[in-house]
């Protein structure tokens, strides 16, 4: 289980990094935190000829809040987000999701941008981005562009990023105004495993107690993370009750297409996703009511 040979480049700037991708084309692969790519290289399931390591590109390691938006450089480590104490109350969805990623040593190395660009359909970051209607910036030979969450994920391990584009920044709108609650719940076989199914949700309540906004992002249940738009519509305008959540869950499981694997059949994942939708909504509603 030793990686195949590759040429290694450690650019110091984005400009240099993009130049390397243009130069090497499909032969090159971007190395961010390496927590998914390197295991694949160890199994020789990935055998890039060229690795472009972003570890030395300082401009990708920033994080700040701009108004109501959390801005994260692509090389922000999961651990750095987990350590943002204030975020735990402001938007628990993010921290709870991040805490479900692997284990401490994985979170110390793994990056936000790497996780989004890798686009594992069972990963947490894509669901966080989707649930919060976030967007990412990418830079390529033709300059910068912004990609909305809804347009980023295409299918298994495939995004809208071109091979010579680098994801540079992630922007996550944080809740404001109306009382809002969020939660990230998942079922994994062991602590830290990829989810059998998972749900990130955020709901906002009208002063009269009805739901004015609801987001549901599901993972592990399709070829990409899924926003359950019909279930969200079924929630809006209703009170946060058990019956309403159950109805939303049954709508949501019609919006997903889980595949079967060792850790759960398609039917099982669909069922578990429904259970988790209900549980996530219940937690988020409780938090919204307390907000």
């Amino acid at each position: 289980m030793k990686p195949a040979p590759f040429s290694y480049f450690a650019p110091r700037s984005l400009h240099e990094a993009v130049g390397l991708l243009v130069e090497h084309g499909d032969a090159a692969k971007v190395l961010a935190g390496g927590q998914s790519l390197v295991p694949m290289m160890a199994f020789r399931l990935a055998m890039p000829d060229v690795l472009v390591d972003l570890g030395g590109v300082g401009e990708l390691e920033h994080s700040r809040v701009e108004g109501d938006t959390l801005v994260l450089g692509a090389m922000t480590r999961h651990r750095a987000v987990q350590d943002m104490g204030w975020l735990r109350t402001r938007c628990p969805l993010i921290v709870e999701g991040v805490e479900l990623i692997g284990h401490p040593a994985i979170r110390n190395r793994g990056t936000v941008g790497g996780s989004l660009a890798h686009a594992d359909p069972a990963a947490e970051w894509p669901a966080i981005l989707l649930a919060l209607d976030g967007e990412v910036d990418a830079v390529g030979p033709n300059g910068n562009r912004t990609i909305r969450a809804a347009d980023l994920f295409q299918t298994y391990f495939t995004t809208a990023l071109a091979p010579d584009e680098i994801l540079t920044e992630v922007r996550l709108p944080l809740p404001d105004g109306a009382p809002t609650g969020s939660a990230f719940v998942e079922m994994a076989r062991r602590h830290g495993d990829f989810a059998v199914a998972g749900v990130g949700t955020q709901i906002s309540l009208h002063p009269n107690g009805t739901i004015v906004d609801a987001r549901l992002a599901l993972i592990g249940v399709a070829d990409r993370p899924v926003r359950a738009g019909s279930a969200e519509a079924a929630l809006r305008g209703h009170g946060p009750t058990e019956e309403v959540f159950a109805e939303a869950a049954s709508v949501a499981i019609g919006e997903i297409e889980p595949s079967s694997d060792l850790h759960g059949s398609s039917d099982y994942r669909r069922h578990v996703a429904g259970v988790l939708v209900r549980r996530a909504l219940t937690i988020a509603a409780r938090r919204a009511a307390a907000a």
Partner: peptide, 8 residues
């Protein structure tokens, strides 16, 4: 060890 689940 991702798919054969040793207890932790």
């Amino acid at each position: 060890f991702m798919d054969f689940l040793l207890v932790s």
